[in-house]
């Protein structure tokens, strides 16, 4: 009927085996994609196996290109932004893709910027790729900047300085 019931059901143990062999089959998939897919779907009766394409893991949030958020975003997991955010973003890892735009503060443990940020970045590790466009300050502990990245602002290595001398 609904998905939550079917999700809790398979505790019989025989379901884990085909999933293992299915992941083994997915390794071969790069060489011969269509036969391996047919095998995988034949082995597993219930089809929960997501196609091993660009589909991210379940915990990851994707703000796709067509999506626009006005307000705050907060997550204890990863966020991938391809769309537009007006407001603050806070997550474990934030990826701002090429073409994405964020107006506000982006904070997290790790921030990878390929798009545009107008505001501030606060992260332990900041990566600016060649397509990055950053207007505002970057507060970091570890920064890497590829050739071609645009930065208009200050780089401050001041991220989380609890034990400051004096």
């Amino acid at each position: 009927m609904s998905s939550i019931f079917t999700r809790n059901e398979p505790s019989q143990g025989d379901k884990t085996e085909p999933q293992k062999s299915e992941s083994a089959a997915s390794l071969d998939q790069a060489k011969r994609p269509s036969p391996a897919m047919a095998q995988a779907s034949a082995q597993v009766i219930t089809p929960p196996a997501p196609p091993p394409t660009t589909q991210p893991a379940k915990g990851v949030s994707v703000i796709s290109r067509a999506l626009k958020i006005t307000g705050q975003l907060e997550s204890s997991e990863d966020i991938q932004i391809e769309g537009e955010v007006e407001g603050d973003v806070r997550a474990a890892t934030v990826r701002v893709g090429a073409g994405a735009k964020v107006r506000g503060t982006v904070s997290g443990d790790e921030v990878e910027l390929s798009g545009t940020v107008e505001g501030k970045i606060e992260a332990r590790k900041v990566v600016l790729t060649s397509t990055a466009h950053m207007s505002g300050d970057i507060i970091h502990k570890d920064v890497s900047i590829q050739s071609g990245a645009y930065i208009n602002g200050h780089l401050k290595p001041e991220y989380s300085k609890p034990e400051q001398p004096g």
Binding site: G59, V60, G71, E77
Partner: peptide
């Protein structure tokens, strides 16, 4: 698009 389990959006 997917707003993941751990994500909280206000707005």
């Amino acid at each position: 698009s997917r707003l993941g389990r751990a994500l909280r959006v206000r707005g």
